[in-house]
Design a protein around this nucleic acid. Structure first.
Length: 433
DNA sequence: TTGTGGGTTAC
RNA sequence: AUUGUAACCCACAA
């Protein structure tokens, strides 16, 4: 008799394992785990890993196998079973990643290494098993790529610190962080917690898997490929070295808040800020990474003349009347870059050129989810309403333009009035209000 | 409560 | 064509 397994059986079992590993690691901070490899080929773990990779709907790797192909031709059951066999017999070997380059917001190119689906699944299984162990070591100041931690958490952390009287902010950009991670140093840090040789070997192989670009194979002797599943975790393990040193020795000179490779240090005095930069340089030289001096800044937050960008928001002290006295309060609102990006997205959707046959409803349908998303992200601070209002106004202006073009007429009525009517009858959402 | 589908953000 | 991790939101289905 077979007991019927619920649909989320694998998910629950994976969570159970993660909980156990988390507690075991927390209980003994020095413990090095050795029996982990047999966990990654557990059927429930592999199924959960496959489910997660599948739900990302990413494209195929260098072997050309796509998620669609596995599901509809090959069969997920067979795919997972074969991965399991390969892991058990030790015949699993990663393939090189497929290298592509995508444009970054600043116009430069970001190299991406896309591993084949099979490697993504094995990496995900490994991540499920080892992540809870490292989670116990990660510090409170680290927010990027971590479960249950968000950009909003990082921003709230900053706002909390600044309310304590911080005036000096060190804003650090690391030169090509992912691409400069040293394999040997990273693995030394991994080995502080893991001594399962088969797991370590897997991690080595993924780091050294290389990539293929235009049918040419390239080796990777440095860096962790952006696009692979474990890279974000590995990058946090690497920089946790900094977090740990900071928490043990330097909390007095400032508070560090980190989102992946983007970090700020919040200090009360200029001297502390300068000292922080020295400490960072010393730690970075040990990790063999470098500060991008042209993008890093030291900011004095004492008035409303200057602020800093972090996680898509601009943070600056703005005067506010509180019970008759003027006070400077930290405000967080969309950065110039973010404003530009939102306007561009709106323009893209409302471009009348090829959308003339669209109905107003269709356009609103397209716009509403975006508005919802922006609202959720930037609506953190009520001061941001000032800026979000501008975007609302811009959306209505663009919609007006579309409406007039469609009706093939020049504006006869007041734009703002018509825009109001248009919005009212079409169910367009607002960023503010 | 769980499972789909759409979207935003960050890096 | 565009990968990855994470958070959040909305809609739908039982």
């Amino acid at each position: 008799m077979n007991a019927v397994k619920p649909a989320n059986y694998a998910k629950v079992k994976a969570q159970e394992l993660q909980g156990k590993l988390y507690l075991a690691a927390k209980e003994n901070p020095k413990r090095r785990f050795h029996a982990l490899y047999d966990k990654i080929y557990r059927e429930d773990i592999l199924w959960e890993a496959w489910r997660r990779v599948k739900s990302n709907k990413g494209s195929g790797g260098v072997d050309g196998i796509t998620i669609e192909h596995i599901e509809e031709v090959y069969g997920a059951e067979r795919f997972v079973a074969e991965i399991r066999e390969k892991l058990i017999s030790g015949t699993y070997h990663p393939l090189p990643a497929r290298r592509i380059e995508i444009p970054k917001p600043d116009g430069k190119l970001r190299p991406l290494g896309i591993p084949p689906i099979i490697d993504r699944v094995v990496q995900m299984a490994t991540k499920i098993v080892i992540e809870p162990i490292f989670e116990t070591d990660f510090k409170n100041c680290s927010y990027g790529f971590r479960p249950k931690r968000s950009q909003h958490g990082a921003i709230r952390h900053i706002r909390r610190e600044i309310r304590k009287g911080v005036c000096w902010v060190v804003d650090i950009d690391i030169k090509g962080y992912f691409d400069n991670i040293q394999h040997e140093k990273l693995m030394k840090l991994v080995e502080q917690r893991i001594n399962d040789r088969r797991i370590l070997k897997l991690l080595w192989k993924w780091l050294k898997a290389g990539f293929v670009k235009e049918d040419q194979f390239y080796e990777t002797e440095l860096g962790s490929p952006q696009g692979s599943v474990i890279s974000p975790l590995l990058s946090n393990i690497y920089l946790n070295y900094l977090d740990t040193i900071w928490e043990n020795k330097f909390t007095e000179i400032g508070a560090i808040v980190r989102y992946a490779d983007d970090l700020v240090i919040l200090c009360k005095t200029k001297e502390q800020a300068m000292k922080s930069i020295d400490v960072l340089k010393a730690v970075f030289s040990k990790l063999e990474i470098q500060i991008n001096t042209s993008k890093s800044k030291l900011i004095n937050l004492w008035d409303d003349k200057i602020g800093f960008d972090f996680l898509g928001m601009h943070h600056r002290k703005i005067p506010k009347q509180v019970k008759g006295i003027e006070r400077y309060i930290l405000r967080s609102y969309p950065s110039k870059k973010a404003m530009k990006k939102m306007k561009e997205k709106v323009k893209e959707v409302t471009e009348p050129r090829n959308r003339l046959f669209w109905t107003m409803n269709k356009m609103v349908e397209e716009l509403n989810p975006k508005i919802q998303g922006w609202r959720n992200y930037y609506g953190l601070d009520s001061f941001a309403d000032l800026f979000l209002n501008k975007i609302d106004w811009y959306i209505r202006k663009r919609l007006m333009l579309f409406w007039n073009k469609k009706r093939n007429r020049r504006k006869k009525h007041s734009n703002s009035r018509l825009a109001g009517i248009v919005a009212q009858y079409s169910g367009l959402k607002k960023l503010v209000g």
